[in-house]
Write a protein that binds this DNA or RNA. Structure first.
Lengths: 210, 210
DNA sequence: CATTGTGAACTCATTCACAGCG
DNA sequence: CGCTGTGAATGAGTTCACAATG
């Protein structure tokens, strides 16, 4: 395993590989070649081998990769071989939808706290059993429940403020759904999920590529 | 304007530039330099100029860019200087949340139809006033209402099927929220919004960069 | 002998540096 | 004079091609 710089795109692809491996296991496959895995993920076979090569030698020459073993290896690389506690701020339509999303718990991502600043929402109990807390209790709750990932589903105007609160509470990984750039200290990681940017890309391509 | 190949990332950045220009206009700015715009978007100033340079000469040397004019130019480039009709399939928590999302209509993206296959949902009227239609009526509705963008918020197991239906109905731009790779003909564009992949990236970085 | 693992070649994207111009 | 526009230089990421090997 060499520790050269690893492209960001490699991490994204590992996540794809993992999903296809789950499906392959479900379909009864024991082994898979880089060619087959690449085809399923719509990438180049050499890309698959290179991506995996950054982290170790997981294959058997002349045979391929063990479907189950490789899943475990990728889980270790992505650090998803354990549970992660998440806190979410902004319990509107989107926030509520995420709290009920089936995909997170099955992958080891658990919402353990929900926050809002709206007096009418605070104290309400969600269908998941979680009670909406006051945003002012965030710092305390983070410590108490060991929250490591913060999810922001507020209106854009308050997203930066929420990010600051998370950051101050030592939550160093944020998933930001609000359509605004948030600025955080070096030590804090942010991933943005931005619906309208994706729509802009679609309309651009519709206009130009067709 | 040269028509060389334009990086995908350039389109994403144009969308960012546009947002910052809106804010600059709101704050009363008439002109902006590539340096300032770059700083706001956290990119290199030369990047801003090169990105814009793919599409024309929008600036004034020695001065900068007109905040309002540049907005219009970018809207033209991204083809968001008009309305786009969208249809959504899968009216669960996420689908409902998107239908009520404020950000889409203000940017010219309108949901004009909502579909599901669940008998209990079909016929219900949403708070937006839209009635949930039977997925079997999709093709007809697409024609009738001129739907150009399809949004998929179904469980992964049926996402491919929905994509096929859209594709068959000549909807050639899809926004896919289900965590699965969908395969479509060459003529059809797909953008994926995948929450768990973003979480995987966060956990990877948390483990490795801290 | 089929397939991995990987240096080298290549392609694509970003940044530099400065000429061009209002 | 200051900032844009852009060719040239650099850097990053992908693909090729083949040696290594179970």
């Amino acid at each position: 395993m060499k520790t050269g710089k690893i492209p960001k795109a490699t991490i994204t692809r590992l996540s794809f590989y993992y999903r296809q491996l789950e499906l392959l296991e479900f379909d009864g496959y024991r082994m898979v070649s880089s060619e087959k895995l690449a085809w399923l993920c719509q990438v180049n076979p050499a890309q698959v081998r290179k991506d995996l090569g950054y982290f170790g030698e997981f294959g058997v020459r002349g045979v391929g990769y063990d479907v189950i073993d490789l899943q475990q290896e990728i889980k270790k690389i992505l650090a998803v071989n354990r549970n992660w506690n998440m806190g979410i701020v902004g319990i509107g339509n989107l926030g509520s939808a995420l709290l009920q999303h089936q995909n997170f718990p099955t992958r080891g991502f658990s919402f353990v706290a929900a926050f809002d600043s709206d007096e009418n929402k605070i104290g309400k109990v969600l269908s998941s059993g979680l009670m909406i807390k006051d945003i002012r209790d965030l710092k305390e709750t983070v410590k108490e429940l060991n929250i490591e990932i913060g999810v922001i589903t507020t209106p854009p105007s308050v997203a930066q403020g929420v990010a600051d609160i998370f950051s101050e509470a030592q939550v160093n990984a944020l998933l930001n759904f609000s359509p605004t750039q948030i600025h955080v200290p070096e030590t804090c990681l942010v991933e943005n999920i931005d619906f309208t940017i994706k729509l802009d890309i679609l309309t651009y391509k519709l206009k130009n590529e067709i």
